[in-house]
Design a protein around this nucleic acid. Structure first.
Lengths: 306, 306
DNA sequence: ACCAACCCATGAATAAAACTAATGGTTAGA
DNA sequence: TCTAACCATTAGTTTTATTCATGGGTTGGT
């Protein structure tokens, strides 16, 4: 067997130095002396045969090897930490933490409605929701950053499973007094002179583009983005634009704001939300329970008042 | 900072015990005594608060926590090992190893033609080709199992880059004396009574299904698979079926075997091969060089004899 | 039923390593 | 030109890892 030389401590030190700027600072954060870190890294450098930092006066700059190691550290350490915490939870007889990834802005409200009964039903399982991923949601699932992915576009690959949990229709939300407000449905051309509001995601991930505007070669007058549904719909209500949202979400707001919902295209834009999991997790009870709960959960489209 | 307790040695021991069946055997493989391993694991168990194995008579059986740790080990240890080897290569001034993943059976021959000039041009870079991935090719790319993915279906996600390297046409290969051999092009119905030979991949990854047969609702009489192109085309030549392959590949064989190439559909099935990489690798010279080489490489369709 | 062959756990002793304290050299900024 | 901040190094100390020696338990063959 080849000599082991890369130990966790080395990754930890490299990460800490990067975060805190100096060996000394890193040392104090790690509750060690500067000397300890210096020794430990020097030993690694000796074994590797290459320096990790260039000593430039009183500060350090990563070498190429160092950059590479920093990448390794940032990737592997969180996995070790999560493993430890999961093991501790197992030891305590708890069930663990369900890490949910969201790739679907408007689903957030729907998710909350599934999470709350879940938390009641599984008092010993915590839930954690993440939204930003270096390699996208699927990457996060594959890389063990999350355990469950909520997404509108499933990606069937070996090792992953996607279960549809509900269907919905993507509609356009316009102000009550808007010229388009009373149309039965819209054509792409109707948006030519509108300001379109969306969540801040790339256009190729927005169905209103991929399924509606692009095929017709139409571009709206302007495109603005908003992080939150509330603000977005406030903007719509005050006549500053139109927004594309799931029907159930739009209808929830249209009772409170001066909004109207209009179909996109004669047949409407049909969408589905999927829950993605790793096949290797197929025996994790609380994960299956969550999916089951999500599937049984009353379809949000049929939720509201008659 | 929370106590660090999961060290590399623990993962190594757990993996070794799983592989060799007993602590004693694992110890000898690791060049340590049985006692050392016993102590080291016991310490981990104490810190975790849960046993890793159930001691059943003279052998060990993994507990749930142990199973989980074994998974972690099998996932993380190879990454550490690869990091070490890459760092050693960096130290020696070598360029490293380019790990190529293949998701495209017939591309193998094309790949060889790119690899050989690459190896000449970069004598200090090794090439390694892998074909099986737990989470598919994209997963392997994201999970740092490979550095480059050869695939016919790109998957645009943040953090990944896909460069098209060549276009080709997917055609049907039939025996010279086959009734369809002289047709200018085929319709899906023409395959109704044929035996179709393909590589052993799921039908939803085969273009002849997704782009040709499925849209017309046609199913061939039988579907057989073959791992290798040679065997597959031997089968075709001996009248046992027909096969869908890239035109350039089919034409290479049709000079040696009694085969004819026929277009699928009036316009043919157009395909592209992409090379996928991580964006974070965009400064790895030899990787970019490989892509450049692949792109410049004479399009295989125009390769052969007139 | 007994014995030989395994296998794992444990405690004490030892070898190895990690860590600290003290110190000196270098650099950047007042 | 001081001073404060940093890192490296040496020597000494503490902690940890490993071994050795041993004992107890299980298994399978005779």
């Amino acid at each position: 067997m080849v000599k082991m030389m890369l130990e966790r401590i080395h990754l930890t030190v490299i990460q800490a130095v990067d975060r805190h700027g100096s060996l000394t600072a890193a040392a104090s954060h790690l509750h060690l002396t500067q000397s300890a870190l210096s020794h430990s890294i020097r030993k690694l450098e000796d074994k590797l045969g290459t320096p990790i930092w260039l000593r430039e006066g009183r500060n350090l700059r990563l070498t190429q090897a160092g950059e590479y190691l920093l990448g390794i550290s940032n990737r592997l350490l969180p996995q070790l930490e999560h493993a430890e915490s999961k093991l501790r939870q197992m030891a305590r007889g708890e069930r663990g933490t369900l890490r949910i990834g969201m790739e679907c802005h408007p689903c957030y409200q729907w998710l909350l409605k599934v999470v709350s009964p879940f938390l009641e039903q599984w008092p010993d399982v915590d839930v954690d929701v993440k939204q930003k991923f270096q390699f996208g949601g699927v990457g996060a699932l594959v890389g063990y950053e999350i355990d469950l992915l909520v997404t509108p576009d499933p990606f069937h690959k070996s090792g992953l499973r996607f279960d549809p949990v509900f269907d919905y229709e993507q509609v356009l939300v316009v102000p009550l007094d808007h010229p388009l407000a009373n149309r039965r449905y819209l054509n792409a051309n109707d948006l030519r002179d509108e300001v379109l509001l969306t969540y801040p995601v790339p256009a190729d991930r927005l169905d209103i583009y991929t399924q509606f505007l692009n095929p017709a070669g139409v571009v709206p007058k302007r495109h603005k983005t908003s992080e939150t549904t509330d603000i977005m719909l406030q903007m719509v209500a005050s006549g500053r634009g139109v927004a594309a949202l799931p029907r159930w979400l739009a209808e929830e707001y249209s009772s409170r704001l001066a909004l109207k919902v209009v179909r996109l295209g004669r047949k409407g834009i049909a969408k589905q939300i999927y829950l993605g999991t790793r096949e290797s997790d197929d025996r994790v009870e609380y994960l299956n329970a969550f999916i089951e709960l999500a599937r049984r959960h009353e379809n949000p489209a049929r939720g509201g008042d008659s």
